[in-house]
């Protein structure tokens, strides 16, 4: 099974690199889809079927379609060669250094390899599949956050409608 892990991890990373390296925005979007698919496969390998499938359904299947759609409609020309991009370079260096510091701190402080994760207790009174488990938790323990997120989504939907309809009567 580690064999498959390496394949899909490589796929995810290659997709990620492709997003950054490609000059053509459509190629970048496409690399991102590949990266999402690899990530979904990694989730499924961890027996988190629902999370993996939702990753494909929501991100690869819906959000990236809209991304690709907009990029194609705008017909962005290939990134032009500018003079030395000082600000871009400076900003990227700051981001990379801070991210690397964060990762190194987390990895050195954690006890990866020696620690064992606590076994997951199945929620009572439900089926065995992870769909049942997640559903039960979402609508019992985490009912309040779910409602808040739902309201947030509703607000943003209304906001989009208002913004896109400039002339309101």
């Amino acid at each position: 099974m580690t064999f498959f892990f390496f394949i899909f991890a490589a796929l995810t990373l290659m997709g990620g690199i492709g997003v950054v390296v490609n000059r053509n925005p459509v190629s970048s979007a496409f690399s991102m889809i590949i990266s999402f698919l690899g990530l979904a496969a990694l989730f499924i390998q961890l027996d988190a079927y629902l999370v993996g499938i939702l990753q494909i359904l929501v991100y690869a299947g819906a959000i990236m379609v809209l991304f690709l759609f907009i990029i194609m409609l705008l017909d962005i020309p290939k990134a032009e060669k500018k003079r030395f991009p000082v600000f871009t370079l400076g900003a990227s260096i700051v981001v990379v250094v801070s991210f690397a510091t964060l990762m190194i701190t987390v990895i050195t402080r954690s006890d990866i390899g020696s620690a064992k994760l606590p076994p997951i207790e199945p929620v009572k009174g439900t089926g065995s599949s992870d769909v049942h488990q997640i559903g039960e938790l979402l609508f019992s323990t985490y009912w309040f956050p779910i409602q808040v997120v739902a309201v947030l989504l509703l607000v943003s939907t209304v906001g989009v409608v208002v913004l896109s309809k400039r002339e309101l009567k």
Binding site: L54, I56, L57, A60, G61, V65
Partner: peptide, 9 residues
């Protein structure tokens, strides 16, 4: 869900 996810591709 699997069918819908893959078919959406």
């Amino acid at each position: 869900l699997f069918v819908f996810a893959v078919a959406s591709l």
